[in-house]
Design a binder for these strands. Structure first.
Lengths: 362, 362
DNA sequence: TTGTAAGCGTTATCAC
DNA sequence: GTGATAACGCTTACAA
């Protein structure tokens, strides 16, 4: 046969790995019965089931995930293909998304397979995952306006759910979980407008990404409804990094006619903005108002509830919560591949001390 | 048999999945020969190999990872068990570590399995991973001073490499990749001392973690060598979040006798510190000097090399690079389980504009 | 309620 | 250089 058995025996005492065969022999039962008992089949008698469960426990037995995947035709593994921007940057929001998803997976016995790939190699990775039977389903992360992955995955027959939406979400039917990004930014912008601002800037994420494009739409919608100009020199867009938030804000505040308020597409960028303002001796909210979209990133949160300082006014939707929801949708999708699952989360508006009426209020 | 075959057929045209059997039949060869040709066995004739490779390519064939894992006794999957702090916080440094590791894995045909678990449940997860044969090896993330995982993994016979070191690194033999955290912080602190500072504060990560304890040691070593007091009211320690950096710094600068310089254990905390300083109208470096340990997190880096502002003086070691190195060590460990691999990286000191001599320079 | 046996798609031994 | 064939450790039709 030829099994090198590179695996340790999995027991904490030396000896051979306990497997279904040895366990059933030891119990004087067939493998079938033991397997059924452990997997909760109803036809097994309660007495037998208890005997089997106890023996399994005592022997420290866990079925081999590999063998059971092969036999059953499902791996209980869900693939996450993470797009990397330049310099192998993984969006830090992703680690929070993971935290939410992993909890949901764990309680259902699922695992998470990760492949981080350069932006342009994603499609090949999905092809491989499908052909290799490594995963039962995948999450599509970071959908762009143009998104060939949807068609590909449908062609491959690999179940998937999109985190976000693609450009033509309205015309195609695929499962997704998204946040109302447009609504969120419209609320944020309107808040500033109601305070009397009309020179409002936007520091946004990369607008080839659907979520960033949506956030921009929300911003422009609010401005247009108020009848205000949308000045392109007030609009910045790039990767959602702290340094970009800083440089964009610095440019804005050194303009001849600087904005009186800035809307940010993410907390990280807003933090860069605060740093720029502070360095320039500009005080919030008197000299400048700031609002930001906030994913409730755990590493930007204080440990206790004791946020100890006046902080930003935000429109918030927890990306951890999204991770958990998406995980559940994925698992439902695996059970029922034909169901169309679509969900849109509504962010919360949280008013804090970073916004006020502008000085030059007309 | 009873295979539901929930997997799509993996081809982009309808039809049955191509597997080794169908491929070999189609070629008029045995499965053995086809398998050998594809896996680069030397005894296959060049002519046959080329024929097989072409056919495999045309048929879009990939061996089933599951089947091959079962037969070969190895999964080509490496487990990463991520400890989550309170509020399901995953250390954001982890996403950068991933980016580095995944590239190394990808080129070697390995995959990454992720389980994020609450701090106190980690051991069970390792047990399960071992018994389920889900992975060939694991990375131990976030080693603490007391670290029972080492013994456990050795008992389980599951190959592993530690990212960092544990409390008794000197007395036990296990493989690890670490940064010279102590040396790094000693350099940072000495830099301040040489500028004339002697009232120096430390804002550090959680010191139950070995890396944070090491950073503290480096700090105290430099202070002691200079013959300066180590004031406990200048020492703060908690999770490495931006808000904690803020609150700790705010406390420091509002003391009756505030420090003239602060050493931070991470960039995220230092950013909180800069925010606190800015809010208090304190200018760097004239009113206060700052140095930080820096993991070169991608989302805190500017896109180009164009860091557009005087920024922090740092002691830097790329955590992405560490991810890549560790991945290679893991794969070596899988091939040669008995090798002891130990490596310590040396950080770079980068002098920038956040440090200067103190005003009250004696 | 339990058991028998086929099969999942590979890899590896051994013979040719 | 190539080919039968027996594992790998499970799940599940089918039989009892």
């Amino acid at each position: 046969m030829g099994n090198l058995n590179r695996w340790g025996d999995g027991t904490e005492v030396s000896g051979n790995a306990v497997n279904l065969k040895s366990l059933s022999r030891q119990l004087g039962l067939s493998q079938t019965t033991v397997s059924r008992a452990l997997n909760g089949f109803p036809e097994v008698s309660e007495r037998t089931r208890r005997r089997v469960q106890k023996a399994a426990q005592d022997a420290n037995y866990r079925p081999s995930a590999i063998a059971s995947s092969l036999a059953a035709g499902r791996t209980r593994v869900i693939g996450h293909v993470i797009p990397m921007a330049q310099h192998r940057m993984i969006n830090p929001h992703f680690s929070d998304f993971l935290a939410g998803a992993s909890e949901a997976y764990a309680s259902a016995g699922y695992d998470m397979l990760l492949r981080a790939v350069p932006l342009d190699e994603e499609e090949d990775v999905y092809r491989d995952l499908a052909r290799q039977h490594r995963v039962d389903a995948v999450v599509v992360h970071g959908p762009k306006l143009e998104e060939p992955r949807i068609d590909l995955l449908q062609k491959l027959g690999l179940p998937f759910v999109v985190h976000g939406r693609c450009g033509d979400a309205e015309h195609k039917s695929y499962s997704f979980l998204d946040v109302d990004n447009q609504g969120a930014m419209e609320v944020a912008t309107r808040h500033l407008i109601e305070l009397g601002h009309r020179k409002i800037a936007l520091v946004n994420g990369l607008e080839t990404m659907r979520f960033a494009a949506d956030r921009r739409s929300g911003f422009t919608a609010a401005m247009e409804k108020a009848g205000y100009d949308i000045r392109t020199d007030y609009m910045h867009s790039a990767d959602m990094t702290e340094p970009f938030g800083h440089s964009a804000t610095r440019e804005l505040i050194t303009m001849d006619e600087p904005p009186t308020a800035v809307v940010y597409g993410s907390m990280l960028m807003a933090m860069g903005g605060m740093r720029a303002a502070a360095n320039a001796g500009i005080k919030l909210p008197d000299d400048l108002s700031m609002v930001t979209y906030d994913d409730a990133l755990s590493f930007l949160e204080a440990e206790g509830a004791e946020r100890d300082d006046p902080f930003l006014t935000v429109v918030r939707s927890s990306i951890q919560e999204a991770g958990g929801k998406l995980a559940h949708m994925l698992m439902e999708k695996i059970e029922h591949p034909d169901r169309l699952l679509q969900q849109v989360m509504q962010p919360d508006f949280i008013n804090a001390a970073s916004t006020a009426s502008p000085r030059d209020n007309a």
